[in-house]
């Protein structure tokens, strides 16, 4: 996984609530056996009309947001299906950070495993950033993970919280499978004890 460095980029506003993972990437694009290449299908049915032309009412179609690296989103973003194709599509399309009031649990986990930083903020702070994002090209927002700070275009600073373990994995680009494999002795010991207390689970 790539290390998450300090990010300064354009933020796009997506204020709709309950944006589900079917909307982020519809099921018919899940037939791939790869992780890459899903960016082109990101928000497909929201982005495109049935005839393949771009919908005028979708923010990411506006020239100002074509290079957006940050999304500011409505509550409960990422609800629904557990498909990791949702963060894969987002990162493949160049999104590195999503800011909102709340995220669905599985989507939250999946995102961090792919180096995608999700930031939960109070509704008043998200509203401010949503307004900033509406400024288009001028909406450069800086996300400083090390300092846990977001710097708004007007220079104002918003602090954010992140669990220390998630922060460490992102900043150091850690492979958590390798970390867990180092726990093999503890896992072996657990199985040894468990085999005695629940023998019917071991064939």
């Amino acid at each position: 996984m790539d290390k998450f460095a300090k990010l300064s980029g354009i933020a796009a506003p997506l204020p709709a609530i309950n944006i589900d993972t079917d909307k982020i990437i519809p099921a018919r694009f899940l037939k791939t056996i790869k992780r890459t290449g899903l960016g082109k299908n990101l928000f497909n049915d929201w982005k495109l009309n049935a005839d393949g032309t771009e919908r005028a009412d979708f923010a990411l179609n506006e020239p100002a947001y074509k290079k957006a690296e940050i999304l500011v989103v409505g509550e409960n973003f990422g609800c629904g299906s557990s498909r990791e194709h949702a963060p894969w599509a987002l990162t493949d399309a160049g999104i590195k950070c999503v800011i909102g009031t709340s995220f669905a649990d599985i989507f939250f986990n999946n995102s961090f495993k792919n180096g995608l930083l999700l930031i939960k903020l109070a509704p008043t702070d998200v509203e401010k950033l949503m307004e900033d994002a509406k400024g288009g090209h001028n909406a450069r927002i800086t996300v400083d993970l090390e300092q846990q700070e977001i710097v708004r275009p007007n220079g104002a600073v918003i602090r954010f919280d992140i669990e220390p373990f998630r922060k460490k994995c992102l900043t150091e680009g850690l492979d958590d499978i390798a970390l867990s494999l180092k726990q093999a002795p503890a896992i072996d010991a657990f199985e040894g004890r468990d085999r005695l207390s629940r023998p019917w689970l071991y064939s």
């Binding site: 557990s82 599985i106 986990n109 867990s180």
Partner: peptide
């Protein structure tokens, strides 16, 4: 019983564990 993403599927296949809160 709960749903997980593909990275976690790989994690469970490899380690029979998950990192969770």
């Amino acid at each position: 019983a709960f749903g997980i993403g593909t990275s976690e599927v790989e994690h469970v296949l490899a380690t029979q564990t998950l990192i969770q809160r």
